[in-house]
Design a protein around this nucleic acid. Structure first.
Length: 196
DNA sequence: AGCGTGATCTTT
DNA sequence: AAGATCACGCTG
């Protein structure tokens, strides 16, 4: 399957959040290790009206990547333990990104199991902190893009509306009302919702 | 239900 | 300089 090209990502964040579902995220590590996962859960973080978005008050040292060209990776560290993987959306100089919250392993499960310290397949990438660990992604990947031989996304058939679920976002305290989380209904790799 | 863990941001 | 917060995962 062909790779998604730069213009695919230059979309309003919420729209990209939905269009990325079902696509195959690929990381190729030295030693020709191919890690592939199907994106099954995403969230939108966008602009100045969304107080949960890192960039809602403007550009800072941490969030500057969110303003860069669409298809750039925004990776940040939180809770003293976890890296979060985002794909930048919107035209350059407009802040927005899609948080990748869960994937279904497609290739490289053995490597992922070693990274995660578990053999339970539905637990390998069923959360945003889990999937960065499974894919060995940390802040060194911040600012890289999806148009090279290390990171890219493969196209896949679009999902139909009745396959996609919508909800509020997980783990935030501001802008709780926005229905900006998208996921594949009945997919066992979608994260368990916290704090219910 | 509680806690570890550290970067970032806000307030003093 | 100090304090609060945090797009989480694990244990119990």
């Amino acid at each position: 399957m062909e790779r998604l090209e730069p213009q695919f990502y230059e979309l309003p964040t919420l729209e990209l959040t939905e269009k990325l579902l079902g696509k195959i995220f690929v990381r190729v590590l030295p030693g020709n290790i191919h890690l592939r996962g199907r994106i099954v859960e995403t969230e939108a973080y966008s602009g100045t009206g969304d107080e949960a978005c890192h960039a809602w008050r403007g550009q800072t040292a941490r969030n500057r990547i969110m303003f860069q060209r669409p298809g750039t990776l925004y990776v940040y560290f939180t809770y003293g333990n976890h890296y979060m993987l985002n794909i930048v959306s919107e035209p350059e100089n407009t802040a927005g990104a899609v948080l990748i919250r869960a994937m279904e392993p497609v290739e490289g499960e053995l490597f992922m199991q070693e990274q995660r310290g578990t053999g339970i397949i539905t637990s390998l990438m069923s959360g945003p902190g889990k999937l960065t660990r499974a894919l060995a992604i940390d802040s060194r990947s911040n600012g890289k893009n999806l148009f090279n031989e290390e990171f890219y996304v493969e196209n896949a058939p679009s999902l139909t509306e009745n396959q996609i679920g919508t909800s509020t976002r997980v783990g935030i305290s501001k802008s709780r009302e926005l229905l900006w989380r998208k996921f594949i209904i009945n997919n066992p790799h979608v994260s368990k919702v916290r704090g219910v």
